[in-house]
């Protein structure tokens, strides 16, 4: 028998097998980690045209979320406020600050400030803010600790799995309705009783969000 291949090639099948056993799970794990919203979306922190700080307004000053995001409990969409809302205070407070020049310009010209949207679900997902906000789900559940953010970043993955976690066990995430916008609240609450009394039945089937 002629020697076509050198002796070390005898080990090739073993090497291939070991490589497959090591590489394949690594690749799958990698894809599962890197290609899911937990990695791709969490941490997204775009530069906004105006350096609005939730930490100052929400935490320090204690302004309620709904002062600016006024339609969050009425509609599916949580609106960014019009410049007029900003100017209610900033016509007096820091009224000449260069950081707010875009706001003043927007208010006088009527052109909206080009805020960069951070949280966006795909077109085939129909999410409704009002039903969550009115039924004991706080902003922090999906937006993270906004009150601590100087610059807002995407704190939660907002993948379907993330939504299902709460939809499957609402009692773990629910709080009294009047405390929904109290973002730093950390108290005890009988979620099970609330789910029972309020008849909280978040849908788990597809037509809940996909239509």
């Amino acid at each position: 028998m002629s020697d076509i291949f050198p002796r070390w090639t005898n080990k090739i099948p073993l090497m291939v097998g070991v490589a497959a056993a090591v590489v394949l799970p690594t690749v799958i794990a990698g894809i599962t980690y890197y290609f899911t919203p937990k990695y791709t979306r969490v941490g997204y922190q775009p530069k906004q045209p105006v350096a609005f700080s939730h930490a100052i307004h929400s935490d320090q000053l204690g302004i309620d979320c709904r002062y600016c995001h006024s339609d969050v409990d009425k509609s599916w969409f949580s609106n960014i406020p019009a410049s007029e809302t900003c100017m209610r205070c900033h016509s007096i407070v820091a009224k000449d600050s260069p950081k707010l020049s875009l706001v003043r310009e927007s208010y006088s010209s009527g052109k909206p400030i080009p805020w960069v949207q951070i949280h966006k679900t795909p077109d085939y997902v129909y999410f409704n803010h009002s039903v969550h906000v009115n039924r004991g789900i706080s902003c922090v559940k999906c937006h993270g600790e906004i009150q601590k953010m100087d610059e807002v970043y995407h704190a939660k993955p907002l993948s379907m799995g993330f939504c299902l976690e709460c939809h499957r066990e609402p009692e773990k995430h629910i709080r009294p309705n009047d405390l929904v916008t109290k973002l730093d609240w950390n108290g005890e609450f009988d979620g099970k009783k609330a789910v029972h009394d309020w008849k909280v039945q978040p849908g788990q089937s597809c037509s809940t969000c996909h239509r």
């Binding site: 599962t32 993948s159 799995g161």
Partner: peptide, 8 residues
């Protein structure tokens, strides 16, 4: 079947 972020 593969684990995915949609948990489906």
């Amino acid at each position: 079947p593969a684990p995915n972020a949609n948990e489906i």
